[in-house]
Amino acid sequence: MKNFRKEILGLLLIVFISVSATCQEKTSSDSDTKAKTEKKSKKKKRKKRGKVRLPDIDLSHWKVTLPVQNEKGRPYEIDPPEILDFASNEIARPYMYIDSTDGSIVFHAMPTKSTTKNTKYTRSELREQMVPGKNNVNWSFKDGGIMKGTLAMDQVSKDSNGKYHKVIIMQIHGRLSNEQRDLIGEDDNNAPPILKIYWQNGKVRVKTKVLKDISASNEEILHENAWVDDDGFYFEQEVGFRKFTLEVKISEGKMVIVLNGNEYKVYEGIHMQRWGVFENYFKAGNYFQSRDDDAFAKVKFYDLEVSH
């Protein structure tokens, strides 16, 4: 009996030692797994914080005008294909550059002597080129077109009344054909902008052109002074400094502007119909609307697409 008891006690001792070792191994294994998981998580967070993001914007059909002068004293421009390498252009770098933290292109403008013809304001702004490198191939309302972009006001200065300075962030600009230019005796192909979209004190404002006289002839309406600005329209949504989406849809006799996919402004009727006489091109970026000292604005574009 004594031997039997000894055998039982021995077996119990072996089981106890075995179980203790297994628990220790499991605890050690769990600790190792937890440590590895935490290490991977921290590594992932560090990697995420340091991740480089590049904008997915095709610039092959855009040129840019910047608020700095070239050697001829005119605004500095970069056409395709050189614009595809804008990030390496030292002249462009202060005014058009990549923010790799959020994958945007930043357009920076401020008052300088580098203004384009017929304006006192400067710009860091893209101009559509249907044929890369050329300005003389454009589109009509009959041809139609869509421009869609996601953007945000990054920084902007204030005026003496404490209001933010205005910035035009998208446009549709009119253009005279060479024949129209010669017909009315102009020295360039410039025509009014049928659409100007502003970032104005945190809201999106739209302005278009209307005819002074809807009975004017097709030749008379080619003159810039035949058109005047309308009263403008504010979208209800306040975008502030948040990211937002704008879409501009053009068809014959009609123009539709969409904010964030759920608020619309539609223009149609006699003024849109008569505008069909002009060629057009899209513009996007930062057309800064102030000459105040030390004024500036930075606009970010995260994506920008055009189709016809």
Rank of each mutant, 00 (worst) to 15 (best):
K134R: 12
Q289C: 03
T22P: 05
E305Y: 13
E186Q: 13
D303K: 09
Q171I: 02
P192K: 00
T245H: 12
Y95M: 05
K34V: 05
E77T: 12
S31A: 10
I83A: 01
L12S: 14
V204G: 04
G133Q: 15
G50V: 06
E125H: 06
E25A: 11
F278W: 13
E179C: 02
D229R: 11
K212M: 08
M147K: 15
R49E: 12
Q200Y: 13
M170W: 10
V266M: 11
L304Y: 03
K34W: 13
T112M: 10
I17G: 01
Q180G: 14
K300N: 05
V131R: 12
S104M: 02
H108A: 07
Y267N: 01
F241H: 03
S28I: 08
A226V: 08
D99P: 05
L54M: 15
E25W: 12
S217W: 06
G149I: 04
L246D: 03
V156F: 05
I78N: 04
E220I: 00
N135G: 10
I14K: 15
K117H: 15
D56E: 13
R49S: 13
D30V: 11
I214K: 08
T245Q: 15
I83Q: 00
D303Y: 09
G50N: 08
L211F: 06
V64F: 03
T116K: 08
N70K: 05
F233M: 06
I8Q: 09
L222S: 01
L222D: 05
Q129S: 07
D32T: 01
T33V: 10
K72L: 10
G103L: 00
G174E: 09
D56W: 01
Y95G: 01
D294K: 15
L66S: 00
R74W: 09
I270F: 02
D294V: 09
Q237C: 03
F141L: 14
M153T: 06
E7L: 15
S290P: 07
N178F: 05
V52F: 09
G73D: 04
G103A: 00
E186D: 11
E71F: 04
D56P: 02
G240S: 11
R123G: 00
D102C: 02
V167C: 09
I83R: 04
T245W: 12
R5C: 09
V131G: 01
K166E: 03
E279C: 05
S177H: 04
F233S: 05
G103H: 07
K142S: 06
S31V: 03
M96C: 15
V206G: 01
K207F: 09
P111M: 05
V210Y: 02
S217P: 13
E238R: 13
F233W: 11
F107S: 04
I250S: 04
K72D: 13
S41N: 14
K142L: 01
G240V: 09
P81I: 03
M1E: 06
R93Q: 15
K63T: 01
E279H: 06
S215A: 14
G73Q: 10
Y97A: 08
K134I: 02
G285C: 03
